[in-house]
Design a protein around this nucleic acid. Sequence first.
DNA 1: AGATTAGTTGAAAATGAGTTTCAAAATCGG
DNA 2: CCGATTTTGAAACTCATTTTCAACTAATCT
Lengths: 154, 154
Amino acid sequence: MAGPKRAADDRFARFKEHLRGQRLKSTAQRDTIAKVFLETQRHISVEELYQEVKQRNPRIGYATVYRTLKLLTECGIAAERHFRDGEARYESAAKRHHDHLICEACGKIVEFEEPRIEVLQEGVAKRLGFRSTGHKMELYGICRDCQKVRQAAG
Amino acid sequence: MAGPKRAADDRFARFKEHLRGQRLKSTAQRDTIAKVFLETQRHISVEELYQEVKQRNPRIGYATVYRTLKLLTECGIAAERHFRDGEARYESAAKRHHDHLICEACGKIVEFEEPRIEVLQEGVAKRLGFRSTGHKMELYGICRDCQKVRQAAG
DNA sequence: AGATTAGTTGAAAATGAGTTTCAAAATCGG
DNA sequence: CCGATTTTGAAACTCATTTTCAACTAATCT
């Protein structure tokens, strides 16, 4: 198996190349932040990433985490998302296009693909005279686990 | 014809009832803000509403506009929307369910309904074990007018 | 109508996510 | 190792929105 570890290594190398290509410097802080980001599978918030990064190097500041996430986004490794809670979350950009389904009770984020929706979205844009450039779609609901909890509590 | 004026009157009355029902007070400020909001058809931002309100009563403060929009939202007359530009916009909640298509060049906001998308969204939620509670969908693109401008400029 | 009570107002301060500033520190090409 | 250039962390700053608070006003009571 290729494994997620290998994939993370590849992307880390891509990050380093991006830095070199832009004549930016490789620093211990950037390396740490990028590695921690690449190890997580979650839709991680800046605060969460900052907390994890601090465990490896408590001297890294909040601003550096923001700056490095921006770099990771620029070179196509991270993708910024904005859900309802107001703070940006970052996910791996190495995935195929997908949208999100979010549990309003526990915050769980599930990814899904539904090409039939995409087709209809394109149709709507075209009908209204728009050249489509993208979309944002989030479904909200209560996940199976939280439905159970509610029943148990009720 | 019933006309949009009559509809606005009805909703204004509903607002006043809501205030009475909650033992809140009717004030000249609230009346002005509600009326200005009800007269506009746009997806209006707080800043825009504040500017229009100021023309009728320059002593009304920003905070009161925010507070009154919250009241209008609570009683189901206004609906809060968050598009990409970062500031909240409010639209009339009296409309049927719809989603938005937004021009990335000029900011124009077009409403649309596409029940076939809604059906597919419900299907996605159900398949993944969620009880659906809502969704957020925005399509982004370049509108016909802005496509022309680009051609002319290019 | 006047007094009382409780909600409301506007200005300014506070908040919270995110960005910028700046002096000190670190990187990297030579 | 030098030195030009970039980066860092802390603190200051944005920007949208919310909260605070003393003065004010609407609704209620007499």
